[in-house]
Computed example of a mutant assay.
Amino acid sequence: MRSEHCVTRNHIQVFHNRVLPSGPQRIRFRTLVYGSMLPLIVWAGIAGFLGYFFDPIAPMVLCGLFVTWIALGFTLRRRRKHSVRCSLYGAFGAVLAGSLDGF
Protein backbone atom coordinates (compact mmCIF):
# COMPACT_ATOMS: atom_id res chain seq x y z
CA MET A 1 0.00 0.00 0.00
CA ARG A 2 1.40 3.38 -0.97
CA SER A 3 1.85 6.03 1.69
CA GLU A 4 -0.98 8.25 0.43
CA HIS A 5 -3.41 5.37 1.00
CA CYS A 6 -2.32 4.97 4.62
CA VAL A 7 -5.37 6.05 6.61
CA THR A 8 -7.33 4.60 9.47
CA ARG A 9 -9.98 2.35 7.95
CA ASN A 10 -11.20 0.36 10.96
CA HIS A 11 -13.43 3.01 12.52
CA ILE A 12 -15.26 3.57 9.24
CA GLN A 13 -15.88 -0.16 8.86
CA VAL A 14 -17.41 -0.28 12.33
CA PHE A 15 -20.06 2.34 11.58
CA HIS A 16 -20.62 2.27 7.79
CA ASN A 17 -19.19 -0.76 6.05
CA ARG A 18 -20.41 0.30 2.58
CA VAL A 19 -18.64 3.67 2.67
CA LEU A 20 -15.16 2.32 2.00
CA PRO A 21 -13.85 1.42 -1.43
CA SER A 22 -13.20 -2.27 -2.04
CA GLY A 23 -9.41 -2.03 -2.09
CA PRO A 24 -6.59 0.30 -1.15
CA GLN A 25 -7.65 3.55 -2.77
CA ARG A 26 -7.18 7.16 -1.77
CA ILE A 27 -9.84 8.08 0.78
CA ARG A 28 -11.03 11.69 0.75
CA PHE A 29 -11.81 13.63 3.90
CA ARG A 30 -15.49 13.69 2.94
CA THR A 31 -15.53 9.86 3.03
CA LEU A 32 -13.82 9.89 6.41
CA VAL A 33 -16.43 12.28 7.83
CA TYR A 34 -19.31 10.35 6.23
CA GLY A 35 -18.02 7.13 7.78
CA SER A 36 -17.79 8.86 11.15
CA MET A 37 -21.29 10.34 11.24
CA LEU A 38 -22.45 8.32 14.26
CA PRO A 39 -19.70 9.59 16.60
CA LEU A 40 -20.06 13.13 15.22
CA ILE A 41 -23.81 13.15 15.83
CA VAL A 42 -23.46 11.69 19.32
CA TRP A 43 -20.83 14.20 20.38
CA ALA A 44 -22.66 17.13 18.78
CA GLY A 45 -25.75 16.11 20.78
CA ILE A 46 -23.74 15.91 23.99
CA ALA A 47 -22.15 19.32 23.31
CA GLY A 48 -25.59 20.81 22.56
CA PHE A 49 -27.00 19.34 25.79
CA LEU A 50 -24.11 20.70 27.83
CA GLY A 51 -24.40 24.13 26.23
CA TYR A 52 -28.15 24.33 26.74
CA PHE A 53 -28.44 23.07 30.32
CA PHE A 54 -25.07 24.17 31.65
CA ASP A 55 -22.65 26.96 30.99
CA PRO A 56 -21.56 27.58 27.35
CA ILE A 57 -18.00 26.93 28.49
CA ALA A 58 -18.74 23.18 28.81
CA PRO A 59 -18.95 22.50 25.03
CA MET A 60 -15.81 24.59 24.53
CA VAL A 61 -13.96 22.38 27.02
CA LEU A 62 -15.26 19.27 25.22
CA CYS A 63 -14.08 20.62 21.84
CA GLY A 64 -10.74 21.54 23.39
CA LEU A 65 -10.28 17.95 24.57
CA PHE A 66 -10.99 16.66 21.07
CA VAL A 67 -8.54 19.11 19.50
CA THR A 68 -5.88 18.12 22.04
CA TRP A 69 -6.31 14.39 21.35
CA ILE A 70 -6.29 14.96 17.57
CA ALA A 71 -3.10 17.04 17.85
CA LEU A 72 -1.46 14.36 20.00
CA GLY A 73 -2.45 11.60 17.57
CA PHE A 74 -1.19 13.66 14.63
CA THR A 75 2.16 14.22 16.34
CA LEU A 76 2.60 10.56 17.24
CA ARG A 77 1.82 9.45 13.68
CA ARG A 78 4.22 12.00 12.18
CA ARG A 79 6.98 10.70 14.47
CA ARG A 80 6.37 7.22 13.02
CA LYS A 81 7.07 8.69 9.55
CA HIS A 82 3.48 8.70 8.26
CA SER A 83 2.56 11.31 5.67
CA VAL A 84 0.75 14.48 6.72
CA ARG A 85 -2.46 13.27 5.09
CA CYS A 86 -2.25 9.88 6.77
CA SER A 87 -1.48 11.48 10.13
CA LEU A 88 -4.40 13.90 9.92
CA TYR A 89 -6.94 11.32 8.79
CA GLY A 90 -5.67 8.70 11.21
CA ALA A 91 -5.71 11.05 14.18
CA PHE A 92 -9.19 12.33 13.37
CA GLY A 93 -10.58 8.84 12.82
CA ALA A 94 -8.91 7.31 15.85
CA VAL A 95 -10.23 9.99 18.19
CA LEU A 96 -13.78 9.57 16.91
CA ALA A 97 -13.58 5.76 17.04
CA GLY A 98 -12.05 5.74 20.50
CA SER A 99 -14.50 8.26 21.86
CA LEU A 100 -17.45 5.86 21.50
CA ASP A 101 -15.75 2.90 23.13
CA GLY A 102 -17.38 3.78 26.46
CA PHE A 103 -20.88 3.72 25.02
Score class of each variant (00 low, 15 high):
103 F>M: 13
69 W>E: 09
44 A>K: 00
64 G>S: 10
17 N>K: 13
7 V>E: 03
13 Q>W: 11
26 R>Y: 08
8 T>C: 15
34 Y>V: 07
5 H>R: 06
39 P>I: 00
87 S>T: 03
10 N>G: 13
70 I>S: 03
95 V>G: 02
17 N>M: 08
80 R>V: 04
88 L>W: 15
81 K>W: 09
17 N>V: 11
75 T>Y: 06
78 R>F: 12
33 V>F: 13
73 G>K: 08
30 R>T: 06
78 R>T: 15
55 D>Y: 15
92 F>S: 04
34 Y>R: 08
12 I>L: 10
85 R>I: 14
27 I>C: 03
61 V>M: 07
96 L>V: 05
85 R>D: 14
42 V>G: 02
67 V>P: 01
70 I>H: 04
53 F>I: 02
46 I>C: 06
28 R>G: 11
33 V>K: 01
29 F>M: 14
99 S>L: 01
63 C>M: 12
62 L>E: 03
62 L>G: 01
18 R>S: 13
43 W>N: 15
98 G>D: 09
52 Y>N: 06
66 F>M: 08
48 G>P: 01
39 P>T: 00
55 D>W: 14
78 R>G: 13
41 I>P: 01
45 G>M: 11
58 A>Q: 11
49 F>V: 04
32 L>K: 07
61 V>I: 12
77 R>Q: 12
78 R>M: 15
69 W>F: 13
65 L>M: 12
52 Y>D: 03
71 A>D: 06
58 A>K: 03
81 K>D: 14
39 P>V: 00
95 V>I: 13
13 Q>H: 12
32 L>W: 08
56 P>C: 02
39 P>D: 02
99 S>D: 05
6 C>A: 12
13 Q>V: 11
48 G>K: 04
82 H>T: 07
46 I>V: 15
60 M>Q: 12
45 G>T: 11
83 S>K: 07
8 T>K: 08
77 R>K: 11
100 L>D: 01
9 R>E: 06
9 R>A: 06
28 R>V: 14
33 V>I: 11
9 R>I: 07
33 V>L: 14
59 P>V: 08
45 G>E: 05
101 D>W: 05
53 F>M: 03
2 R>H: 14
97 A>C: 10
24 P>F: 14
74 F>W: 08
2 R>E: 11
14 V>Q: 05
49 F>G: 09
90 G>I: 11
72 L>H: 06
2 R>G: 03
84 V>W: 15
34 Y>D: 00
35 G>H: 04
100 L>Q: 04
35 G>N: 06
58 A>W: 11
102 G>P: 02
43 W>R: 02
3 S>E: 09
86 C>T: 10
14 V>R: 05
8 T>W: 10
62 L>H: 04
97 A>D: 07
34 Y>M: 09
34 Y>P: 02
61 V>Q: 03
26 R>W: 06
86 C>H: 08
33 V>G: 01
9 R>N: 05
90 G>S: 12
34 Y>E: 03
51 G>M: 00
29 F>S: 14
56 P>K: 00
